[in-house]
Amino acid sequence: MPDIVLKTANAGMVWGIAIAIIAIVLAQALLYARLAFRTAETIGFPKEKCMLGFRSGAISAIGPSIAVFIVMVGMMSVVGGPITWLRLSIIGAAPTELTAATVGAEALGVKFGSPQYDLMALASSWWTMAVNGTGWLLVTALFTHKLEDLREKVGGGDVKWLAILSSAAILGCFGFLNSRTIIAGVKALSSGSTQASGPFYATIGGLVSMMLLVKLGQKIPALREYNLGLAMLIGMATAVILA
């Protein structure tokens, strides 16, 4: 990538735009937190429980955020600091954004990151990342409230069924997210190989340790806030040891 391109990608103005957008992401979180605290007060839900929920979310996010941090440093060296910061602070994880950046360059017939990758290619990459993110954001802005109406209709105010509904959705979602790793792992092991790939062991380690931690948390409630972080570390350790 020519120097002028990297220099433009790291211009002060681009940092300024990134700061402005990230400030809105922060503002959104603070507005919703305030709404949650106020609503809790109105319906008589204790403030301490609200704080506990907020803190649990903040603590549980540490582990996955470290992973995002590491991936982000890698991406910064490829597409520049401010755009990486901006893109990874909103919808679209690193692989999605890098795909869009590559497609943008390819539409011009330029190879991403090559010496031919000029300012025009940079503009095309940025455009493609922005227009791709717009897809999710537009659908969210237009249809989220309709989905709430639908959920109310399907839920019908039956609390027990609503609990099953959301748990079933989570199990379907994470069943899907785990399925590829598990299929690959089982295939590797059944083909006579003595070991499967790291992610397979990480998945199994995370799964089994979380089950034990939830059981343990019923006896030691103080532990529960750290469940996700601990399960993640145990899963990672399992992968490092066995893979």
Partner: peptide, 11 residues
């Protein structure tokens, strides 16, 4: 490994 471990934990 973090993503795989978290997916497993949630499941």
């Amino acid at each position: 490994y973090t993503v795989a471990a978290i997916f497993g934990a949630m499941f």
